[in-house]
Simulated scan of single mutants.
Amino acid sequence: MVDKQVRTRKAKKQRPAKTPDGRMAVMDHLRELRRRIVWALVFIAVGAVVGWFLYPHTLEFLRHPYCSVPEKYRVVSAGKDAPECALIYHGALDGFTTRLKVSVITGAIFTAPFWLYQIWAFITPGLRKNERRYTISFIAVSTVLFAAGMSLAYAVLSKGLQVLLEQSGYGTQAQLTINDYISFVTLMLVVFGAAFELPLLVVMANMAGVLSARILKKSQRIAIFLIFLFAAVATPSTDPFTMCAMAVPMVVLFEGAVLFAVVHDRRKARRKAIERAEQHLEDDEPSVVDPIPRSLPVAGDAWSDTT
């Protein structure tokens, strides 16, 4: 019994003390970061196991843009039982590594809300209480934007491939390897998805007070130019069609984020003006009174002592 009490006291001493403002020691921060990373990897690993069994359907889904390219730009299988458009591989391990890579990416996409929550949960203790309520909104909006970017990339992928394959000239056909093609497709999907997170970052910076609406409105032209420059560099296909397909929606989302920042800053300024007016009332001005009466603190013991 005594040993059990001693172990309990030692365990309580080893736990980091919790403070209202979320302050922790450096080593406690590192332990918390390690725990969040481990949980994120566990979620991705579980999703990868599911993605391993869904690989045939995922491969068919990813192969569709290549199969949508006209036959004169790609090699058509001549075998009787061969698929109409086939992706080849040369190495003995290429098929296994491709399936493993696609499974991990699929798992990361399917479990994105869970590991995004781990990232947010690590940041949350350093935020104020009124900022923590945006946790669910942050995860939901980031997931929707990432999915929207990937959907747009998949929609324009076949056209972008056709534009690229046309550049080889008449009399040539492409026979793509599965490793190169899957890398190209996944890079397109991830780049588009990450690019669509731009308005969310702008909104978060505005709500944190880092970027004001005035600065955003002044730098709109430069921001639009940088968006097109980023789209030209980031798109793996480097063709004008894919670049515009990424840049134009990013500009629209950025303008929406600027509009949100304008509305948010106006409300914030109006709120601060009311607070300043209440703090500097003149002698003949009435103060703001709470219409709902509140109960007074109970001090019966103190009153009885004094009487």
Rank of each mutant, 00 (worst) to 15 (best):
L189V: 02
T135I: 03
V38A: 13
F192Y: 13
L176E: 02
K18W: 05
S219P: 05
D290E: 14
V141H: 06
Y154W: 14
E285A: 14
G209Q: 07
V49Y: 03
V210P: 01
H90T: 11
G126H: 00
L54W: 05
L259G: 09
L259F: 12
V76E: 13
T235Y: 10
L201T: 03
A194T: 08
M250Y: 08
A208N: 03
V38N: 12
R99S: 10
G91Y: 04
L93Q: 11
V156K: 08
V185A: 12
V210Y: 08
T8C: 10
V49D: 01
Y181M: 00
H64M: 05
A261M: 05
R63V: 00
V202L: 09
R133M: 04
A261Y: 05
G193F: 01
F225P: 07
I222C: 04
E285N: 07
R132E: 02
F192P: 05
R271L: 09
A17D: 13
T135F: 09
V141F: 10
F43H: 06
A108S: 03
V262H: 05
N130F: 00
Y73W: 15
H29R: 15
R15Y: 11
L33H: 06
A245F: 10
V248S: 07
V262I: 14
R35P: 02
V26K: 06
P249I: 01
H90C: 02
G107K: 00
L30G: 11
L116G: 10
A11T: 04
V191T: 15
S77K: 05
L87M: 11
A155T: 04
D239C: 09
A273I: 01
Q167V: 11
T143V: 11
Q175H: 02
P249F: 03
H264F: 15
A277E: 12
A231Q: 13
V156M: 08
Y134T: 04
A257W: 06
I182P: 00
P65A: 05
G300H: 10
S137I: 03
V42E: 02
T177V: 04
A194I: 09
P199A: 00
A213T: 06
V102K: 01
S183E: 06
A155I: 07
P16T: 08
D21Q: 15
R15P: 07
